[in-house]
Design a binder for these strands. Structure first.
Length: 650
RNA sequence: GCGCCCGUAGCUCAGUUGGAUAGAGCGUCUGGCUACGAACCAGAAGGUCGCGUGUUCGAAUCGCGCCGGGCGCACCA
């Protein structure tokens, strides 16, 4: 509703400026910090002052004087040294909220399917907290887009033929002397992703102490690429099992996918071969004949040098004929926009508890019942910021092929890394140098097997939440308490990953991440639970929810909203749509998290100040109940966008 | 060396893309539980927005120059 009025006012003012001054001015609109300045403010007069050669204050006064009334607006008045302050019609506004005018989806634009690619973890070991940031950011962004009516497809790219998978295969073959049969048994009997976590670290250590072992890696990679031999069979088994583990981990956080495009199919279904031809034909790449890159197909630095500050061209095809990551990613990006003229074949990978299905690419027979994937109008790639250079090369590839528009709609949704606070390193038993102990954060390497696994963190959170729940509700059934604890754990974790803006390095700290007080997910969940409790108590005491539409006519609404307190609370609660749209535009899920927190703060304030059920004045009591119910809905909806559930009790 | 990012309260971070008196959480101190369960609320202390300079009605925000920190710049992904 707020979003709607914001637009309506901006348009009205803009139209007025055009008719009166003949000036096409897209008029900015903002929300004043101080509520005394009204609900909205326009700095339009400042922008016009120079052109009109008049003081801003005089222009503002003239606009306020001359404008026709706008529906839903009580008045527009000049203020300060040239602001136009807008005061909304409170009765109108309250009624509009009550009647549910302009609910969900009001912000939708018909801009076609949006593809969001996230998670993309190498399928060779357990997920860690860095991966969690990627998945939570991506999943939340998807929820934001869907909440505002956009069509979204979620892809999780699986690099099942890469070096990292090969390294684990080398570990099984040469360190543990296991065959495919042995590994299959391990998959069924162990925590396989954890097993591989350690094995990967051991293989990495082996390369360091015995560099000649790198030959095994090369051999394994070739076998995987040809799709033949024991190594290939092993790689397949490892990657599939790990993908399954990753999906299970992510499902604990409510994160799901539509489709898993795999690198093996990029190769076998000739996606790369097709892209390669296209790149050659359009002269985007050329064969280098001399220098250090002799024998390689390269993209010249002219295509991307200005943006990246590099002078070297980028190798796309190695001198041994194999393709680099960038090459494969260009093929993948082309497919995402429907520009490759090819499609994967698909089969069902698994079904989620709610019935939704995940599909996976296959080079075998495809399922004719598969949905249509790819061919998006806009693409977001959730990838950490260290890959900015490579992502720019990929986009430059699209541009070099003549796909300017698609290049402009391919967004690197980047985020900074998750490091560990020195204190957390100590807790994990990671040895630190004196210098590292004093640093604000320490980067740890998955290659060395260091860091915190995603599932371990979720378990720690759930355990701590369980203690809290047990102490508060010892009478509740155990199974239910565990479920509530998990909801709280997920709330804490998702909120923690979202409260930082994308380009802030997170110095992960257990004490902070395990906190359930202050600016945390559980704080917001608690507010929603409290709102529900009031309504539940009402029923327990034999009361029924009033018919608000009948009991709160516009005059009653206006009367109650004369209270500045109520008005500000309602206003804050009604801005979710506006907050989500802003967050989409700026690409910052953190803004939604902040909004949810502010909403919870506002409600907690209300909760303490106004005992709803004890209110004696009938009209006011109905109003307070309506406010409670409205807050409840807004809190629940906003939390849902963050992927956080509201527990039945806390 | 080149490119990108960051520097805001003791600590961890926001700051609606140039607006009105710079905000939260944690920590510290003070006060508040007969239940709409305190995973909460109220209050206090705490700031030269790294430094300098420019742009203009107006700068934490934009430009330039320093200082400090991080990350990239592979025939790895």
């Amino acid at each position: 509703m707020f979003h709607l009025l914001e637009k309506r006012i901006a348009e009205a003012v803009s139209a007025y400026l055009t008719t009166r001054y003949g000036i096409q001015a897209g008029s900015a609109i903002e929300q004043p910090k101080d509520s005394r300045f009204g609900e909205l403010a326009l700095p339009a007069a400042f922008q016009l002052a120079r052109q009109l050669r008049q003081p801003p204050r005089a222009i503002a006064a003239a606009i306020a004087e001359g404008m026709q009334p706008v529906e839903g607006v009580a008045r527009i008045e000049p203020a300060g040294n040239g602001y136009l302050n807008v005061r909304l019609d409170r009765g109108y506004y309250g009624r509009a909220l009550l009647e549910g005018v302009a609910g969900a989806g009001a912000g939708a634009e018909a801009d076609g399917k949006i593809i969001v690619e996230h998670t993309n973890i190498n399928p060779n070991k357990a997920a860690h907290i860095g991966h969690l940031r990627n998945a939570v950011l991506g999943d939340t962004f998807v929820r934001m887009l869907r909440a505002r009516g956009r069509e979204v497809e979620v892809q999780n790219y699986i690099d099942n033929t890469g070096v990292q998978v090969a390294d684990v295969v080398v570990g099984f073959l040469h360190l543990e002397h296991k065959n495919a049969e042995d590994v299959r048994r391990l998959i069924g009997t162990t925590r396989f992703d954890y097993y591989c976590w350690d094995l990967y670290a051991r293989t990495s250590a082996l390369y360091k102490s015995n560099p000649e072992a790198l030959a095994w890696r090369a051999e394994t990679l070739h076998s995987i690429e040809r799709g033949e031999g024991e190594a290939a069979e092993l790689a397949h088994a490892v990657a599939d099992a790990i993908v399954q583990a990753h999906l299970a981990t992510m499902l604990r956080l409510g994160i799901v996918y539509d489709v898993l495009p795999r690198e093996s199919e990029i190769l076998r279904l000739k996606f790369w071969a097709t892209a390669f031809e296209l790149l050659k034909q359009r002269g985007a790449i050329h064969l280098e004949t001399e220098g250090k890159n002799a024998g390689c197909w390269v993209m010249p630095a002219a295509a991307f040098g200005e943006e990246t500050g590099t002078e070297d061209s980028k190798v796309i095809v190695r001198s041994n004929g194999t393709v680099t990551y960038v090459g494969k990613d260009i093929a993948y990006q082309l497919w995402k926009f429907g520009l490759l003229g090819k499609d994967f074949r698909y089969r069902r990978w698994s079904r989620y508890p709610d019935g939704r299905e995940v599909w996976v690419s296959t080079d075998g027979e495809g399922d004719p019942g598969a949905p249509r994937f790819g061919a998006g109008a806009r693409v977001y790639n959730v990838i950490d910021i260290r890959q900015a250079y490579l992502q720019k090369v990929v986009v430059a590839g699209l541009r070099a092929l003549g796909f300017e528009e698609q290049a402009a709609r391919s967004v690197h949704f980047s985020y900074e890394m998750v490091a560990l606070s020195p204190r957390s390193c100590v807790e994990l038993g990671i040895a630190l140098s004196e210098e590292e102990k004093r640093a604000p954060y320490v980067l740890v390497s998955g290659r060395l097997g260091l860091g915190e696994k995603a599932d371990d963190l979720i378990d720690k959170l759930a355990e701590k939440a369980a203690e809290e729940v047990d102490s508060r509700h010892p009478e509740a059934p155990l199974e239910e308490r565990r479920r509530v604890a998990m909801q709280i754990a997920v709330g804490a974790l998702r909120y923690f990953m979202l409260k930082f803006t994308r380009n802030t390095v997170i110095a992960f700290d257990f004490q902070e991440a395990l906190s359930f007080e202050g600016e945390t997910g559980p704080y917001v969940q608690y507010a929603a639970v409290r709102a529900r409790n009031i309504l539940r108590k009402l029923e327990e005491r034999g009361g029924a929810m009033p018919d608000f539409a009948r009991a709160l006519p516009r005059e009653a609404m206006a009367r109650q909203l004369e209270s500045e307190d109520f008005w500000q609370l309602l206003l804050a609660a009604s801005k979710s749509g506006s907050a989500i749209e802003r967050a989409i535009a700026s690409g910052e899920p953190a803004h939604v998290a902040k909004y949810a927190f502010q909403l919870a703060q506002a409600f907690n304030n209300f909760y303490h100040e106004y005992p709803v059920l004890a209110e004696e004045n009938p009209e006011r009591r109905v109003f307070l109940l309506w406010m409670t119910d409205y807050f409840r809905r807004q809190l629940e909806d906003t939390l849902a966008v963050l992927g956080i559930e509201v527990p039945p009790y806390m």
